[in-house]
């Protein structure tokens, strides 16, 4: 018996011993991030089609910037490199997608530094950051360089319908805001052709947010791969639809219709890719629903009454900040506990 023991040690490699379970679903963080990257490919292709070189330039600048900053930070902290989990790549792509095409490369790199160094690695890296890094990067740029971040050159694009179309020098939301502020009227009526343009991406905006179609395709992929649940995007988009529908029904001469709000700005990008960021959104399904509703309300409040034409980034950051509270409030009733909610002790 003692002999068996000796044999075990000397003749075989040591066995692995751990607590149960000894089986695993096989999913890991790297694969999830890879799936997110794959889901972003359609939007990237559309961006390349409409913005050409700028889309490629910004995406590469941000991805390289984020990965490099992540590696540098990890090294400076004396920790494992940890760039293999691809989360920095995702942050980079999302940050680039949230930038206007004309912004200089160095600004994109500054955004990447803030996104990774200040919003993520200072907290200890993936899993610890309370705010979505890409959005922090965008908002820092938006506040620091408001002109560059809202400058949209007029450009001519080959429309997918076949004709050549001129695109105005502002985003649809920006146009609505300035028009309402200056003349108190809506800039244009929202017809089917405009809607189609905005659905496909033939409109002005940040490079990754213009094409609702491509983003929805990516969202469908993420749902199919079980990377996200439907709760956050559905409640987010649904809330925006309901909120804008009410405003529109009350006063159609000063409010754009709900389908405009769904297609305009960064809503699709935000709802599908940013609000669903695992680290900074709630863990419970109920919490995800609350999170989505909150994002929707805040987005519409800022779009309607705020100083900025677009509120998606701020809305998601604000909801990020109350994610811990949502988690706390939406803990499910534990099996075998009374139906009544147990009061939070002390």
């Amino acid at each position: 018996m003692a002999e068996t023991e000796t044999k075990t040690v000397e003749n075989e490699a040591l066995r692995i011993v751990s607590t149960s379970p000894h089986a695993h679903s096989g999913s890991d963080v790297q694969h999830i991030m890879l799936d997110v990257i794959i889901a972003l490919v359609p939007a990237f292709l559309v961006a390349c089609f409409f913005f050409g070189w700028d889309a490629i330039r910004l995406t590469f600048a941000c991805v390289l910037g984020c990965v490099a900053v992540e590696a540098l930070c990890r090294k400076a902290m004396g920790r494992d490199l940890g760039i293999a989990d691809l989360s920095a790549v995702v942050t980079g792509i999302l940050l680039a997608f949230n930038l206007p095409p004309s912004i200089p490369t160095w600004m994109a790199v500054v955004g990447s530094v803030f996104a990774i160094a200040v919003a993520k690695q200072v907290f200890g890296g993936i899993g610890y950051n309370p705010f979505n890094p890409a959005l922090v990067g965008r908002v820092v740029l938006l506040i620091s360089f408001p002109v560059a971040m809202t400058r949209w050159s007029q450009w001519t694009i080959p429309s997918p319908i076949g004709t050549v179309d001129a695109v105005t020098s502002a985003t649809p939301l920006g146009l609505v805001k300035t028009s309402l502020l200056s003349s108190g009227t809506l800039p244009y009526s929202f017809d089917n052709a405009t809607m189609l343009q905005m659905f496909t991406g033939a409109t002005n905006g940040c490079i990754g947010e213009v094409s609702a179609a491509a983003l929805l395709l990516g969202g469908a992929y993420l749902l199919w791969r079980r990377c996200i649940t439907w709760h956050t995007p559905a409640f987010y988009i649904g809330t925006v639809a309901v909120f804008s529908a009410i405003l529109w029904a009350v006063d159609p001469s000063h409010n754009m219709p709900p389908h405009f709000h769904l297609l305009a700005g960064g809503l699709m990008l935000g709802a599908i890719f940013m609000a669903t960021d695992m680290v900074t959104s709630p863990v419970t399904l109920k919490g995800m629903a609350v999170f989505g509703i909150g994002c929707g309300v805040l987005t519409m409040v800022i779009r309607k009454w705020g100083g900025y034409p677009e509120g998606v980034s701020f809305a998601i950051l604000l909801m990020n900040s109350i994610t811990p509270l949502i988690n706390r409030a939406t803990r499910p009733r534990v099996f075998g506990h009374a139906r009544k909610k147990t009061p939070d002790k002390k």
């Binding site: 993936i126 899993g127 863990v283 988690n327």
Partner: peptide, 22 residues
């Protein structure tokens, strides 16, 4: 020893309705 990324899959999987991540 990776940190929790708050994906919530454990919450969905838990048959006791616990929040294992937390």
């Amino acid at each position: 020893s990776m940190p929790c990324i708050s994906c919530g899959r454990c919450v969905v999987a838990c048959p006791m309705y616990l929040v294992p991540s937390e």
